Amino acid sequence: MRQFLNKIGSEERHTFRAIFGKYSYKRYYDKLRGELYSPTMVVKQVEIIDDPEKTRLVTDHPWLNLTKNFTNLDLLHSGDKIQFNDQVAEYTKGYINME
């Protein structure tokens, strides 16, 4: 699946459908403010649906930043189906100490 995500590229926005998993937080360090937490959510079974005739599973469980658009959906429950537009970007897994 990872190879397919690389083929999608990060230049264009795409339409995805997924199943909501749960809310959480990612931890990071800011030199001025110290340790900080940013809200996130995990989604499952992410499909790209740019072409409704040819949907394709692209990843199993990415963690997404809990952006304003997601918070506008009200409280999501595990198993809720969501659809969103986004770009694909690479990220580093785990805690990163920026010192």
Rank of each mutant, 00 (worst) to 15 (best):
residue 37 Y to K: 03
residue 35 E to A: 00
residue 65 N to S: 05
residue 59 T to E: 05
residue 74 D to V: 15
residue 81 K to M: 12
residue 85 N to S: 12
residue 49 I to K: 09
residue 43 V to E: 01
residue 33 R to V: 01
residue 96 I to N: 04
residue 55 T to K: 12
residue 72 N to L: 09
residue 87 Q to S: 11
residue 98 M to K: 06
residue 67 T to I: 10
residue 38 S to K: 13
residue 53 E to N: 14
residue 81 K to S: 13
residue 91 Y to L: 03
residue 94 G to S: 04
residue 46 V to R: 01
residue 41 M to A: 08
residue 55 T to W: 00
residue 99 E to N: 09
residue 67 T to Q: 08
residue 49 I to Q: 10
residue 80 D to C: 10
residue 49 I to W: 01
residue 89 A to D: 05
residue 79 G to F: 10
residue 51 D to N: 13
residue 84 F to I: 06
residue 93 K to I: 11
residue 35 E to D: 11
residue 52 P to H: 06
residue 77 H to A: 06
residue 76 L to P: 09
residue 38 S to V: 14
residue 36 L to P: 02
residue 49 I to R: 12
residue 99 E to G: 09
residue 75 L to C: 03
residue 36 L to F: 02
residue 52 P to I: 03
residue 66 L to F: 01
residue 91 Y to M: 03
residue 62 P to G: 05
residue 76 L to M: 08
residue 93 K to Y: 05
residue 61 H to C: 10
residue 80 D to T: 06
residue 78 S to C: 06
residue 60 D to C: 09
residue 77 H to P: 09
residue 82 I to M: 12
residue 78 S to G: 13
residue 55 T to A: 10
residue 89 A to N: 12
residue 76 L to W: 08
residue 41 M to V: 03
residue 72 N to M: 01
residue 64 L to Y: 05
residue 54 K to N: 15
residue 75 L to W: 15
residue 92 T to F: 01
residue 79 G to W: 11
residue 83 Q to Y: 11
residue 33 R to W: 05
residue 59 T to K: 04
residue 93 K to A: 13
residue 41 M to E: 00
residue 92 T to Q: 14
residue 62 P to D: 10
residue 67 T to R: 11
residue 42 V to C: 02
residue 44 K to Q: 10
residue 40 T to P: 01
residue 40 T to H: 07
residue 96 I to G: 00
residue 82 I to L: 13
residue 93 K to P: 01
residue 62 P to N: 02
residue 82 I to V: 15
residue 97 N to D: 00
residue 49 I to N: 13
residue 77 H to Q: 07
residue 47 E to K: 04
residue 76 L to D: 11
residue 57 L to H: 10
residue 69 N to W: 08
residue 63 W to T: 13
residue 68 K to A: 14
residue 56 R to L: 01
residue 82 I to C: 12
residue 81 K to C: 06
residue 65 N to H: 01
residue 96 I to V: 14
residue 39 P to Y: 11
residue 80 D to R: 07
residue 44 K to L: 03
residue 61 H to L: 00
residue 83 Q to E: 15
residue 96 I to Q: 07
residue 48 I to A: 11
residue 33 R to M: 05
residue 84 F to Q: 11
residue 95 Y to R: 04
residue 77 H to W: 07
residue 32 L to V: 04
residue 64 L to F: 10
residue 79 G to K: 14
residue 88 V to P: 07
residue 57 L to I: 07
residue 67 T to A: 12
residue 31 K to E: 12
residue 74 D to R: 15
residue 85 N to G: 13
residue 33 R to E: 02
residue 43 V to D: 00
residue 35 E to S: 12
residue 58 V to D: 10
residue 35 E to L: 06
residue 76 L to I: 09
residue 36 L to I: 02
residue 33 R to S: 00
residue 58 V to H: 04
residue 78 S to V: 13
residue 32 L to M: 10
residue 72 N to R: 15
